[in-house]
Amino acid sequence: MLDTPLGHLLGDYMMALERHLPDVTEADLPRLARAVGAMVAAAPSAERVAFAATQINVGRKERVRRVIRRHLRTPTFRPSILCRLVGMSRSNLYRLFEDAGGVARYIQRERLLEAHAVLTDPASTQSLSSIADDFCFADASSLSRAFKT
């Protein structure tokens, strides 16, 4: 139920729109759809809006995570490239990964986790410097230092 002040306004709006529909022309339809979308979006309670925002961020974050995972071994991959790939600004990306200390730190952490997985894989014969190279660290020492920080 949209039993909120703006929900009641939406009801009044629906009644008014029904009265005025005979005057609406084809050219008005795209703007009409936008106006209806805005009225409807305003109607749910603040709690529901907050919940929906959380859901939207969960979806966005998952999409960004997938892109990051695909590019962990790409040396040129960095936050500015990620912004272009996912169509988001740097500040939005930062906010999305704020709990991880920002998107750059998140990418670094994912690279470390992958490098660690290879290092601890008994079947792997890769050297530390080769793993460092795979996951875009300058050298084996940089990778070792990154593990310690």
Partner: peptide, 13 residues
């Protein structure tokens, strides 16, 4: 399809 941008909001409401 026409109201994708408010889909999460409408589903949550």
């Amino acid at each position: 399809d026409a109201f994708r941008d408010i889909a999460a909001l409408l589903d949550a409401a």
